[in-house]
Design a binder for these strands. Structure first.
Lengths: 135, 135
DNA sequence: TAAAACTATAAAGCTACTATAAGGTCAATA
DNA sequence: TATTGACCTTATAGTAGCTTTATAGTTTTA
């Protein structure tokens, strides 16, 4: 399988595949005589794994960590679970931060309407005065 | 006021101030004979405005837009309100995306415990098999 | 006087790609 | 056969919003 086929199979751009190889997330494949990369099903599985991790919001460094665990199949998987727990708490703190932010934005927005001039704009005044009373 | 004092006043690093100047968000201040930047209170207010916008999650481009409105005080402020409305809906969609993600992560985490070996790890299996059933 | 603390510029690094440039390879067509 | 088009190669730059590093000049302090 050449790079374009693999890309289409997994739904990624070819540059992304080369990028993952360069970052050490995908093993360098064999090459044809003309230098073209030749991929196997294994590569397809590896690439799909990476993409699913990315969809779950894991960083490339975290994916690299998971891969290193996979290379050691008889170790306990506590580290994998810990990595996921960390990621979950990270996502949760992002959510609460954004919810706080949303409240601030909505209250700021409520301080103005469209019938004013810039000079009297409640939104701009609110930002300028800095009454954002955050924690 | 020199750059270090301004930085301490607003709670930013000096490089950040130079960066904002370079990006056209802060007007270039006067210079001493030795080349040192000299700031006024106006600069302090401008910098504080930028920081509050950043805390509200606005991009530098959006801040630039707000500044251009401020330079035109007798225009109606509909554009300001529209910018904020856009930003609010952006934040909201981020929140719902993260909430969906959290559910996926929690259910993935529930598929494993710490008493297994990597080989039997429910988390890794879950990612590999790709049963992430997202829309 | 010499070190510490401050300032200056320019350039690279960070994340996870995406885009662009310049070129080599291959199969099919005119 | 020449050439077109689709594919492949590498290398480099761009994205956002800074942060870090390098190198050097200036001011303050001990």
């Amino acid at each position: 399988m050449r790079i374009g086929q693999l890309a289409q199979l997994v739904g990624v751009e070819t540059q992304t595949i080369r990028f993952y190889e360069q970052q050490g997330l995908l093993p360098p494949p064999d090459r044809q005589d003309n230098g073209y990369r030749v991929y196997t099903e294994k590569h397809g599985e590896g690439l799909a794994f990476i993409r699913r991790c990315r969809i779950l919001g894991l960083s490339l460094a975290e994916i690299h960590e998971l891969q290193s665990y996979q290379d050691d199949p008889y170790q306990p998987c506590t580290a994998v679970n810990a990595l996921l727990d960390d990621h979950i708490s990270h996502v949760r703190s992002q959510i609460t931060a954004l919810q706080t932010l949303e409240k601030q934005l909505v209250s700021l927005r409520a301080s103005c309407n469209d019938d004013r001039e810039i000079e009297a704009c409640g939104v701009l005044a609110g930002i300028s005065e800095g009454n954002m009373h955050q924690q």
